[in-house]
Nucleic acid binder design. Sequence first.
DNA 1: TGTACATCAGTGAACGCGCGTTCACTGATGTAC
DNA 2: TGTACATCAGTGAACGCGCGTTCACTGATGTAC
Lengths: 217, 217
Amino acid sequence: MATTGANTPRERYRTQVRAEITRRAWEQIATAGASALSLNAIAKQMGMSGPALYRYFASRDDLITELVREAYRSLAETLRAAAATGADLAGLARALRDWALADPQRYLLVYGTPVPGYHAPADITAISSEIMTTLLDACAALAPAGAATPLGAYLADHRDWAAGHPAPPEALHRFLSVWTRLHGVLSLELAGHFAGMDLDPALLFAAELDDLLAPRA
Amino acid sequence: MATTGANTPRERYRTQVRAEITRRAWEQIATAGASALSLNAIAKQMGMSGPALYRYFASRDDLITELVREAYRSLAETLRAAAATGADLAGLARALRDWALADPQRYLLVYGTPVPGYHAPADITAISSEIMTTLLDACAALAPAGAATPLGAYLADHRDWAAGHPAPPEALHRFLSVWTRLHGVLSLELAGHFAGMDLDPALLFAAELDDLLAPRA
DNA sequence: TGTACATCAGTGAACGCGCGTTCACTGATGTAC
DNA sequence: TGTACATCAGTGAACGCGCGTTCACTGATGTAC
């Protein structure tokens, strides 16, 4: 018996309904943000009574956790797929931006303002490090990132988060730059901070990426 | 008559109570995030009945707008004060980080996940551009930022957001880099994404800043 | 193939809660003569 | 200085709302003999 159920009609039905619930939840989040998510509102949209949803999710928090999990999984899969088709770091960066723009609130659910006190379950942090690994691979595959840096030296001693990845310290450094810098442009774009500035965010993102890939002095 | 009231005892009392309301509101936001902010809860904390607050704020949205305004003003003032004491770009960056760490939710209220559909009043965007101006000044005061870049050329044609600031295109480019990159490290730090990675966020921030100030190839 | 039983999706009523906001009011503070 | 009036902070009751969640239930679907 596969643990990945969905064999019997009942199991198929269950996963179908669960999928519809999360689909409507995403719509709601896209419209009004994650804090406005309401089980009752979703039930009403589906023509069901509120309590019915408790057959599928133990609580509202449980649903949100599942959404966070879906978001991480979706991003991990998107990057993995891009890497599988031979995308380099630049390609992964573009895939990241496309993924973020496809559903800004989904990106922000993962990388945006956290709910104070919320702690993600362990399996989610595992997916998160899968994402990092994919990007780290792409960083390591690039030409050497220039001279050793002070931060590189520090990272040589603090590389547990890389989960045994054999990337040299310079690649670790590059990964952190890529992550923080792409997130910087992207999150300001998604938050609308470039609106009204008559700037094309795509150009800012591209310029950031070019600079990240350019050789250094 | 100064429009900056607070002359009569009643006016002084009014501004005092308003200040206490916003102070408690900040405490609440720091504890549970902006979406959990509740007028009734603040009133209860102050030993007042809920409706009493309507003497001071027309609505919950009104209070939140005032908090956003306070946050922008506080940051503008912090940077302005640092610049006034001769701080260069690096000094302003450090002042920014200190300000953000002093109250993470305050930073995130300004630069974090936006509430879909919320539009800030005009006076707030004015303060926002004051912040940009201060940073832009510091960018322009630096040694020339290296060779002209494609983005610099683009910015030469899209500089309305700089509100007539005489900075050369390279300085505009540098400002955007500073803004997006510092925000990148800082927001990931505040969101707790470096937690569990055994990394010192201060070092990441410092490395980002060093790289921003280093001369380019 | 048919019958007895178990599983389980979904309902409707109900609980308790806290929310934002309005309204008519009391009582204290300030103002004008 | 004292009195009449206006201003205004704060109260308490009330409205309507939607929330998450529980519970006992009905009825359909699946399982075992």
